[in-house]
């Protein structure tokens, strides 16, 4: 029982990541607004960042900077990977938002169901024209 309790405390970082990740997925799946979907994807992304950084933590360690006063460091490799991932994530967010703006210009709306209805209407018109 005690063993199960300590192991569950030791895994709370994974659980927080899972919670954030599933919230992000839920937003992406259940909301029709494209900007809201991108925000959901962002939430998903941050959950992955949390997962990596929390796996890099070493109890009693400090930030991985060689000052000469500390000998135990947290693992710097996840930090490097996530540094890259944050910047790339913002770049992809920018692309996504640019696509949303283009969709707004082309369709006049950014709600998924309205876009699908417009597409359907256009297909039916094309079929009738032939």
């Amino acid at each position: 029982m005690v063993n199960a309790f300590t192991s569950s405390i030791g895994h709370f970082n994974y659980w927080a990541s899972v919670l954030l990740m599933t919230s992000g997925i839920y937003i992406v799946l259940s909301r029709g607004n494209l900007i809201k979907k991108i925000i959901g994807l962002n939430l998903f992304q941050v959950s992955v960042f949390m997962l990596f950084i929390s796996m890099g933590k070493v109890t009693g360690g400090t930030a991985p900077i060689l000052t000469g006063r500390h000998e135990i460091f947290s693992n710097p490799l996840p930090h490097v990977l996530i540094l890259t991932a944050i910047v790339v994530g913002v770049a992809t967010t920018a692309i996504g938002l640019a696509l949303v703006v283009r969709i707004k210009y082309a369709y006049g709306t950014i709600e998924e169901d309205e876009i699908l209805a417009l597409d359907l209407a256009r297909e039916q018109m094309d079929a009738r024209a032939q």
């Binding site: 030791g10 599933t22 796996m55 070493v58 135990i72």
Partner: peptide, 23 residues
Amino acid sequence: LVMTGLAAMLLYGTADMPAYGDA
């Protein structure tokens, strides 16, 4: 449904992971 299924699978997967702060 998708969310709970995914969460259940991920939580099952974390059981084998090292604990937080494990050196």
